[in-house]
């Protein structure tokens, strides 16, 4: 008999309840059980970063995390970045600066970018280079990706000056169905990001 565990987690603002085998990798759960194909599989041992998603707002490798470990947690995949039919500023910037070729590394690269810019809203080129070192890209040679991250930093801090809640407006979907009924804001993770971003700006 296969041992199955019931898990309940929030993925891109939606509560999901499923039964999974303990050995189910989070990336396979997202792709195969939830049909969220944005998390890609590359190396399957934590090195390439193409499976990176946000767990409670932090980047993690979903190929070396079990789905059962995401029970009760909040996951954001690239599908959760856009909201109300509008791209997240990071997505806009990758589009604008052509920060991709084949696109295989791109969803993870953008999620890592969201995190990099939350921790440091106006990074230098070298800081961006170091920040994205956790993500491998086989195509671009990285220059355009770095341009895209810097462009996102520019547009997001310009947005933050006029409107401290730029990420809330354009950020991920609500964290739960309940929250959805109440507001059009982002999930807690991204809301915190906006707060962090404006705090850091002030200091």
């Amino acid at each position: 008999m296969v041992d199955r565990h019931r898990i309940e987690l929030v993925v891109n603002g939606e509560t999901e309840t499923q039964e999974v085998e303990p050995r189910r990798l989070l990336v396979d759960f997202l792709r195969e059980d939830l049909g969220l194909l944005g998390a890609h599989i590359g190396c399957e041992h934590g090195v390439c970063g193409t499976c990176t998603v946000l767990m409670n707002g932090e980047t993690i490798r979903s190929c070396i995390t079990f789905a059962v470990q995401a029970d009760g947690q909040e996951i954001t995949t690239v599908e959760g970045l856009a909201s109300n039919g509008k791209f997240h500023p990071v997505q806009e910037a990758f589009w604008e600066k052509q920060g991709l070729q084949c696109g295989y590394c791109t969803p993870a690269m953008m999620l890592r970018t969201v995190e990099i810019l939350r921790e440091n809203p106006s990074p230098t080129r070298d800081q961006v280079r170091e920040g994205i070192a956790s993500q491998l890209c086989r195509c671009t040679g990285y220059q355009y990706i770095i341009d895209a991250v810097l462009e996102a930093a520019r547009t997001m801090s310009a947005g933050a000056e006029t409107d401290g809640k730029v990420l809330v407006k354009q950020g991920a979907g609500p964290s739960s169905a309940e929250a959805a009924a109440q507001t059009q804001g982002s999930g807690p993770a991204l809301e915190e990001e906006a707060e962090d971003a404006s705090r850091q700006k002030e200091s």
Binding site: R23, H45, G46, R61, C63, I64
Partner: peptide, 18 residues
């Protein structure tokens, strides 16, 4: 899990109870 799960993915480790 950052060392153990890669080993499990490659089946270099096959623990029966985690």
């Amino acid at each position: 899990g950052q060392s153990l799960v890669p080993l499990m993915n490659f089946r270099l480790a096959q623990p029966t109870h985690l």
